[in-house]
Amino acid sequence: MQEVFENINWAVIAPFIIIQGILLIVALIDWAKADRFNGPKWMWFFIIIFVNIMGPILYFIFGRSKH
């Protein structure tokens, strides 16, 4: 396993991880500011944090409610 990590060129992978990080942070900021949700507020927190990649996307599409 150690060897695998050494073989990976981190400059290649880094942007991928950074973009995921930005998505996560933007989703969390939006979540903290919003006051109307489709479903319980805390449920969306856990979806954003724990559902890999898809979590923030699901939140942006389905999480917020206009009414």
Partner: peptide, 19 residues
Amino acid sequence: KKWIWFPLVIILMAIMDPI
């Protein structure tokens, strides 16, 4: 925030397979 997350999601999709 569509202007933030939608381009980021498309970038992720586009670079997933090449990597």
